[in-house]
Simulated assay, not measured.
Amino acid sequence: MDSFKIYAQKDIDQLILRREGEVKLGEKVALCAVSENDSLPMALEKLTLSSAKFVLLGIPEDIGVRANGGIAGASSAWKTSLTAFLNIQSNRFLTGAEIMILGHFEINEPLADDLTELRNKVAQIDALVYPVIQKIVAAGKVPIVIGGGHNNSFPIIKGTSLALKKAIDVFNVDAHADLREQEGRHSGNGFTYALSGGYLDHYFMYGLHQNYNNEAILSRIDRDEHLHAAFFEDILAGSENENFWGAWKDRTTIGLEIDLDSIQNVLSSAETPSGFAANDIRKLIMTTENKFAYMHISEGATRMLDGRVSRLTSKLISYLISDFVKTQ
């Protein structure tokens, strides 16, 4: 059965590469579990007792990507990214005490590889994820979620919305709007389901690629005043839509979504040679004045089913996490 693995100290210790004269972030982070025998409900009840503001957890799956016709690999990002993050130096800029490491979801693979079964499984993942996010946000903490496919945007938005008792706004850095039809759950329609469920109010799509969003989606964006798009081609040409930023400035309760296929040459199912530079996204995180209710990093991979590998994805994710914690 699907479950959640709560991390105890020994789980963290085995990931730390210690060096004399240095203190790594993993030596300072908070943990929710006293022992590996703690249940998830017990651990979540302890959240309010911790001074850590941020709660880091993983959803290592690529079922949603495969359910959308993509290539498996997104499940590989969590463990390597956590290892990279825990081995950052603990220093005056970031001590580690600001962050609690909760653990990761353990999700069983469907027995068959047909779209119907995969999409049914994604709906089961939704039901598994959103109550955990709801508990974290209700405890006054900020979840940082490492995926996994972008299908997990839906349960994260839902859990945050239920905790705050209102629909939230979302800023999504992405080449794709992920507003495909409600044809069964997958990585391409998380925001469609969030809008339909009343959990998502205003949706800001930053960096959409003109070549990879169908006309039906573009027409929907044009019709709906709650949907706001800034296209990557317009950003390149220096002609960004002023209405996008005008609508954005007044938003207060916001989720931050970063789909790594928006960054050029980052390993993912939809890897692109043309996109944002990594430092563009780091700068966006560092300079925004808005405070976010959560951050979700999705679609990145260190190893794809087709044989492609990258050692840099995990380090990039580590940078994005540390930037977010430092500036929030």
Rank of each mutant, 00 (worst) to 15 (best):
M1W: 03
F85W: 15
H226W: 08
N243K: 02
L284G: 04
V29N: 02
D259F: 02
H226G: 12
A52T: 10
T272V: 04
S3N: 15
K135T: 13
N87Q: 02
Q182K: 10
T252H: 12
N172A: 07
Q264P: 00
Q14V: 11
L162V: 09
G96N: 04
I157L: 14
E299D: 09
G21R: 07
A237I: 04
D38N: 09
P273S: 14
Q210D: 14
S318I: 04
G26K: 08
P143M: 06
R92S: 11
G140W: 12
D222I: 15
F171E: 02
E61I: 03
D114I: 13
F244Y: 08
I12Y: 10
F191R: 07
E299W: 03
A127S: 05
E106H: 03
N279I: 01
F276V: 00
D261Y: 00
E106T: 07
T272K: 05
K315E: 15
A8E: 12
D169A: 10
G96V: 02
Y206K: 04
L44Y: 11
Y130A: 13
L40H: 02
S219V: 00
T160V: 04
G197S: 12
L236E: 15
T160W: 03
Y294I: 02
N120V: 07
S310E: 10
M205A: 08
I281G: 01
K10W: 09
D250L: 08
N213S: 12
M286R: 13
Y294V: 00
I258N: 02
I71G: 06
A194S: 05
I254T: 08
E257R: 05
K249F: 09
E289R: 06
M1Y: 05
K135P: 05
G188T: 11
V34I: 13
F244E: 06
A84M: 14
E289L: 08
V266H: 00
L305E: 13
V65M: 15
D250E: 10
R92M: 08
S50C: 07
T287V: 04
L320Q: 03
E183Q: 11
I6N: 08
R66W: 04
K315N: 14
Q134L: 12
N172F: 06
S187H: 06
E61A: 13
H186M: 04
G70C: 07
F292C: 00
N120Q: 13
I146V: 15
T95D: 12
A112N: 10
Y212A: 13
T272L: 03
L47E: 06
K315P: 11
P60K: 14
E289D: 02
N243W: 01
W78Q: 09
D13A: 05
W78V: 14
D280L: 03
R19I: 01
N214H: 08
A237T: 01
K249H: 12
D234N: 15
R180W: 13
F105T: 15
K291R: 05
Q134I: 15
L15W: 04
V55Q: 09
S298G: 06
M42I: 14
I144C: 11
Q328C: 06
G103W: 13
L102M: 05
P110H: 08
Q328K: 07
Q182L: 12
A229L: 04
A293M: 11
I146W: 07
